[in-house]
Design a protein around this nucleic acid. Structure first.
Length: 417
RNA sequence: GCGGAAUUGGUGAAGUGGUUAACACGCCGGAUUGUGGCUCCGGUAUGCGUGAGUUCGAUCCUCACAUUUCGCCCCA
């Protein structure tokens, strides 16, 4: 038997319904926030990710699906979507009108070669937004609240926004330098992971779970004291906006995030009952220019759709998702079956949701199937009646049965459902 | 990539080195010969993740592998 590749899953049953539910809500939401749908390729030139996500980030160094195609092109399955959207904005010169704020959203699968566990897959689905050409904290507030409100709208209540600022490039560099200087004499006291982080991403040492209680962490330099006045001002303003919008947020100076391109504000949507990030994002003002585009400020986030489904499943654990049909058409012999097939088409073309006996079931089984499908009406075909032009329709709630002229069947059902 | 745990029908699961692998749900058949849902009766895993090994004999013991899961790393 062939089984699915490690870290993938089949979207089925209730999960599939939840996926469509999330997608539907997202489409509606994005429309009211005036975001346009964009779809970029699932595979891209490997260089795109090396230059955007970062040569030293874990995602690029050990988690990408890379391969050479038949034309010897170095291809990578996208591990995230921001890079692809940025590439598209640059390649299609979507930034032509300098006054336009470009607002896009996407929904699609990403690929990361990592060890799977709960809420974490090798093929994952992300729903995200990217906004270009505005550096106004107002747009940060819009983007953060968009994600926040969407999660709320879906029915998830137990979560909050974890927020931090990394400052501009200069603030960040100064702070990184200060951190390295601070930890240099204590390097041997840190855990092996942190010793690695010291060289690759010193900011990450701050949220190490192993070392966090060490004494040296008590006087560790704070990002906030290295922020430029501009960065500080923007962060303050953003928070004022978030308060105005009733966003439940919390500043966490250890929030760093692993993608190299982030600067200024970064945030995560954190689930309270699972302590898992439902999504995360940030500002990336230098990414567009570093990919050979114009200097274009940008901000965005991505939500883990698989995790949203997981979260919703917990919330809805006791409530069965109701799925029902309008009509079940019962038939046994060939004459009845032919009739069933034709009227099912007529009904379906009239937007009546109906099902037929397509598995040669006994009448008894058909009743059971109709109940399982939660059919509102049963059309019970009978050769004798058919010859007289009559059809039996049973209301499955009241159990009342009527015999009607076959010509009136469609009208009768359309007007009664 | 590192460390721990798990894997038994369609589903939830019990169980044992030795003829037929509990129980429940579901499903199928019958009582009810073309009007079901309740009830009663019967059926429903030639197999216990895969492959080797130990053994007279393995679902059970050993090893490897796969997958899932928890933690680390990292991330959505």
């Amino acid at each position: 038997m062939i089984i699915k590749p490690k870290g993938t899953y089949d979207l089925l049953n209730d999960d599939a319904l939840l996926y469509k539910y999330i997608e539907g809500n997202a489409d509606r939401f994005m429309q009211s926030y005036n975001y346009e749908f964009i779809r970029t390729p699932i595979f891209e030139d490997s260089q795109l990710f090396h230059r955007s996500v970062g040569e030293t980030s874990d995602i690029v160094t050990k988690e990408t699906y890379d391969f050479l195609d038949r034309g010897n092109r170095q291809i990578t399955l996208r591990p995230e979507c921001t890079a692809g959207v940025v590439r598209s904005v640059i390649e299609n010169k979507l930034y032509g009108n300098r006054n336009d704020v470009l607002k896009y959203y996407y929904l699609g699968t990403m690929y990361r070669y990592e060890r799977p566990q709960m809420g974490r897959f090798r093929e994952l689905t992300q729903l995200g937004v990217e906004v270009f050409n505005s550096f106004d904290p107002m747009i940060d507030a819009e983007v953060i609240s968009l994600g926040y409100n969407l999660i709320k709208e879906l029915g998830i209540e137990e979560f909050y926004v974890k927020l931090n600022t990394l400052g501009d490039k200069e603030s960040r560099e100064n702070y990184t330098k200060a951190l390295k200087e601070y930890f240099a004499p204590h390097l041997k006291e840190l855990c092996p992971d942190c010793q690695k982080r010291y060289n690759t991403n010193p900011l990450r040492i701050l949220d190490c779970k192993v070392d966090h209680d060490l004494d040296i962490f008590k006087n560790v330099p704070k990002m906030s004291s290295y922020l430029s006045s501009d960065s500080k001002e923007r962060f303050k303003k953003l928070q004022e906006y978030l308060v105005m919008l009733d966003i439940d947020y919390e500043v966490d100076e250890s929030l760093v995030r692993g993608l190299d391109y982030y600067d200024y504000n970064v945030w995560e949507y954190v689930s309270e009952n699972k302590n898992i990030a439902l999504g995360g994002g940030g500002r990336y003002n230098s990414l567009v220019s570093s990919l050979d585009g114009p200097s274009l400020p940008a901000v965005g986030f991505a939500l883990g759709v698989d995790r949203l489904i997981m979260e919703l499943k917990d919330i809805l654990a006791n409530k069965k998702i109701e799925k029902e049909i309008d009509v079940y058409i019962m038939s046994v012999n060939e004459e009845e079956k032919r009739f069933a097939l034709t009227i099912s088409q007529d009904l379906r073309l009239n937007n009546v949701v109906c099902e037929i006996n397509s598995a040669d079931l006994s009448l008894k089984s058909q009743f059971k199937v109709a109940d399982r499908l939660k059919a509102h009406f049963l059309v019970i075909l009978n050769s004798d009646d058919l010859n007289k032009g009559l059809i039996t329709v049973k209301d499955n709630a009241t159990k009342e049965e009527v015999k009607i002229d076959e010509k009136e069947l469609i009208d009768y059902l359309v007007s009664n459902i």
